[in-house]
Design a protein around this nucleic acid. Structure first.
Length: 504
RNA sequence: CGGGGCGUAGCGCAGCCUGGUUAGCGCGCCUGCUUUGGGAGCAGGAAGUCGCCAGUUCGAAUCUGGCCGCCCCGACCA
């Protein structure tokens, strides 16, 4: 008997949170760094999470009147140059294609040849290329609104990367809409933020704060940026999705013009909104523990894994037959509108090793089935979140599977919500603010703080302090109540509190 | 792009300072037997152009120079 390690993941969250994050990805087999600098390979278990996210989000987008389409990966440099703020925001992280042919070089290698007349930028986001098409498609108010989404990859040339959280290439969805009126575009921006919040809370079991970004944190070229912000287990903030009201900035830059009911030429009002594979990193950091990944049932690729236990070939046949029946019964059940996803793991591995494999991958429910269970017509149930449950009559287990998954789902949300509430505090003085965000020596790499709710007046006056403490204004919550107060820095009056935090 | 560190088997590392037979160790992998209700044991085995290029030397994983890549810390970000 080998030494029993207490946890599957080393180091633990408390010991070294960033390293723990990497180890969970490895142990759950979600992704790997690739030979291409800054780019990751998303492995099947990680990709199936993305597929599940896509499935749910896609339904939500369609339910709110959007259609999918696809626009080019390459954007002519001149397109990007049309909106000044937009260029400034993205120029530094653009990958640029300058050639279209390779020729044999002097030392046997290949050399780029055939220089392009105009360099092509690999899309960091698609406002400009989509806007250029919208300008052709839109002539009359009758053509509006246009509400299109695309699922694709984008490239932002990052210096420092972390799997899922920040990589040079990532997968996302970007919605782009054009409207006849400002109000309609504002409503759209807000509606899609609600969709994201709904998805985060009800599918990812991740509580989020909906809010508006300050000028410094706004999307380049946007009039306003709305965000959903979530707290990770290390109490740092993660921006999980954004929805931008672009005003007429892009329609003016790209001549998205229509004739209104009165025959007047008007610039359209546009929006854009997106979430990315970063959500997988968020999901991991919100729920996982020192034994690996923990998945909310609504996004888990498999809900239940059946682990047959047997000694010899005779038992093997009997147990596997029993397990297969169980698998069929479970698969016929439904959870959250989908058939229950069941995996019968009949690989020829030792029970313990096989069991840990699924623990680390976050499968919500594991059932062990051996001769003893068969004799009693029961299954031995363990839940990823609560550990061993014990023997349960087979019929009862099958019939209650959806309830069980539901309970796990809401338990995860509650747990995450409690963490956030326990670490969110109103702060009213500069000293308290400093104290809140200063790491103490005994903090053991656990960042100090959490979310601070503070009054502020002038963002630029705060900048040196925020920079020093590595804190950012996450958002001004949409739901917050007006509460007169004074800016922690300048003492000037302020109407409401903003959320401050260290961020990813 | 500035400061620091590291490249040796699939992964994690030792060896380098003080050059010298066949380059080791742990995990993993393969084969066999024994095992199997919470990460198995024993035996055998496969697997390395020591990051790349040049130099010094009778001889380089080891010394020197250049290059490349990765990681950590700072400036930027979904």
């Amino acid at each position: 008997m080998a030494k029993k390690r207490k946890n599957a993941i080393s180091p633990t969250r408390a010991e070294d949170y960033p390293e723990w994050y990497q180890q969970v990805i490895k142990a759950a087999d979600l992704a790997e760094v690739s030979p291409v600098r800054g780019c990751m390979v998303i492995k099947p278990w990680g990709y199936s999470l993305w597929e599940n996210m896509q499935r749910e989000l896609d339904q939500m987008f369609k339910a709110t009147g959007h259609e999918n389409a696809y626009f080019p990966l390459f954007i002519p440099k001149s397109f990007l140059e049309k909106e000044a703020e937009h260029v400034e925001g993205f120029a530094k992280e653009c990958a640029v294609v300058t050639h279209h042919r390779l020729e044999a070089g002097p030392d046997g290698g290949l050399e780029p040849a055939g220089k392009l007349e105009e360099p092509l930028v690999v899309r960091p986001t698609s406002e400009t290329i989509i806007g250029s098409m919208y300008s052709k498609w839109i002539q009359s108010y009758r053509d509006l609104p246009v509400k299109i989404n695309q699922w694709c990859n984008v490239v932002r040339w990052e210096m420092r990367t972390r799997l899922f959280l920040r990589t040079a290439e990532f997968l996302w969805q970007e919605g782009h809409t054009a409207h006849a009126t400002k109000q309609e575009a504002l409503d759209e921006t807000r509606q899609m933020l609600d969709v994201y919040a709904d998805f985060a809370e009800n599918y990812m079991a991740m509580p989020v704060i909906q809010g508006e970004k300050t000028a410094a944190e706004r999307f380049p070229g946007a009039v306003s940026t709305l965000t959903i912000e979530a707290m990770m287990q290390d109490r740092k903030a993660l921006q999980a999705g954004t929805s931008h009201f672009l005003g007429q900035n892009f329609s003016q830059a790209q001549q998205i013009v229509f004739q209104d009911q009165n025959g007047e030429q008007q610039f359209a009002w546009t929006t854009s909104w997106g979430v990315s594979t970063r959500l997988i990193g968020a999901l991991l950091m919100v729920h996982s523990d020192d034994d690996g990944l923990v998945l909310p049932p609504r996004l888990a690729p498999k809900h239940v894994v059946i682990l047959p236990i047997f000694r010899d070939d005779d038992e093997r046949t009997e147990v596997l037959n029993y397990c297969d029946e169980l698998r069929q019964q479970l698969s016929a059940q439904h959870y959250a509108g989908q058939p229950v996803q069941v995996l019968l793991d009949d690989r020829d591995l030792r029970g313990g090793e096989k069991n840990w494999h699924h623990v680390k991958r976050g499968v919500p429910i594991r059932v062990e089935v051996g001769p003893r269970d068969m004799a009693a017509n029961q299954v031995f149930v363990s839940q990823r979140t609560t550990g061993k449950i014990g023997g349960i009559a087979r019929t009862e287990f099958v019939e209650t599977i959806a309830d069980r998954l539901d309970a796990i789902q809401s338990g995860l949300f509650q747990q995450a919500l409690e963490l956030r509430e326990q670490n969110t505090h109103p702060i009213d003085t500069l000293d308290d603010f400093r104290d809140f965000f200063t790491e103490s020596p005994q903090s053991n790499r656990q960042p100090q703080g959490g979310f601070a709710l503070c009054h502020f007046d002038d963002e630029s006056a705060l900048e040196p302090l925020l920079k020093e403490l590595k804190v950012t204004i996450r958002c001004i919550p949409l739901e917050s109540e007006e509460e007169p107060g004074t800016c922690i820095m300048t003492g000037k009056p302020s109407a409401r509190r903003a959320v401050f935090g260290k961020s990813y």
